[in-house]
Amino acid sequence: MRIISINVGKPKTVNIDGRLMTTGIDKTPVAGPIAVGKQNLAGDGQADLIHHGGEDKAICAYPSEHFTYWEERYGRPFAAGAFGENWTLSGLTEDDACLGDIYAAGTALVQVSQPRQPCSKLAFKHQLSDLPKAVCQTGKSGFYFRVLQEGIVEPGAPLVLVERGAGALSIAYINQIYYHERDNAAALEQIANHPALSASWREAFQKRLSERTRP
């Protein structure tokens, strides 16, 4: 397991079909070591701080293994940073990454906090209106890390599993429950109560549970 590309970018305003939009989804690979902070990577930023960024979502990661699938589906190339991710990974997918897993990367320690849920800006980036929905429905979502210990990481750095998250709930499993088994109350409760789940996703799962109990 390793980080094959580190990608950063500050928000910028772009014209998309006559519509001005400020977004930080365009990320550029960096060549050398980069600082990993509690909020984000050095040189990185997000435009919509309500839905992106923050300590629970400091680093967006995406498995490079999915690029072939998207290339075949859409007939175009996908490369590092294509999904607005900070870390393009090799050897770690949603099937293997579990909520609460702690990984060492360079001198930093990071923890899996939630699946990635893309917004419409991913569709605008690629001019593919169905891409965000396809990412969710296929489970090829990527995921977020929170930073437990700040440090320095460089491209090619290995990801070393330090501690498996409680219950070994994979990101693939959480996606399955969230998008396809919305009425699985036991699973919803299990995920909602997980200590490593991000605040926003905890709220979403708790809301779904409360809706089930209403008369």
Rank of each mutant, 00 (worst) to 15 (best):
P33I: 04
I34N: 02
A35Q: 14
G37L: 11
G37T: 09
G37E: 10
G37F: 01
Q39Y: 10
L41G: 08
D44M: 08
G45Y: 07
A47Y: 02
D48C: 07
L49S: 06
L49P: 00
I50D: 12
H51E: 00
H51P: 00
H51Y: 12
H52G: 01
H52S: 04
G53D: 03
D56M: 02
A58I: 02
A58C: 03
A58G: 05
I59P: 01
I59G: 02
I59Q: 02
Y62H: 13
P63S: 10
P63I: 02
H66N: 14
F67D: 01
T68F: 00
Y69V: 04
W70S: 05
E71A: 13
Y74Q: 03
G75H: 09
F78R: 10
A80C: 04
A80Q: 09
A80I: 04
G81R: 08
G81W: 03
G84E: 11
E85Y: 12
T88L: 06
L89D: 12
S90L: 10
G91A: 12
G91R: 12
L92P: 08
T93L: 11
T93A: 12
E94I: 04
E94Q: 08
E94A: 03
D95V: 00
D95Y: 07
D95R: 13
D96H: 11
A97D: 08
C98N: 01
C98K: 05
L99P: 08
G100E: 11
I102C: 12
A104S: 15
A105H: 09
A105W: 07
A105C: 15
G106D: 07
T107P: 08
T107C: 05
T107R: 10
A108D: 12
Q111M: 14
V112M: 04
V112L: 04
Q114P: 00
P115I: 01
Q117A: 14
P118L: 12
C119K: 05
L122W: 09
A123H: 10
K125N: 02
K125I: 02
Q127L: 04
D130T: 10
D130P: 00
L131D: 07
L131V: 09
A134V: 13
A134E: 15
V135C: 07
Q137H: 05
T138V: 07
T138C: 05
T138S: 15
S141W: 01
S141E: 01
F143G: 02
F143D: 05
Y144M: 02
V147C: 08
Q149Y: 02
E150T: 15
G151W: 08
G151V: 03
I152D: 14
E154G: 14
E154P: 00
P155V: 05
P158N: 06
V160C: 05
L161I: 06
L161A: 10
R164C: 09
R164S: 14
G165C: 13
A166D: 14
G167N: 14
A168H: 14
A168V: 13
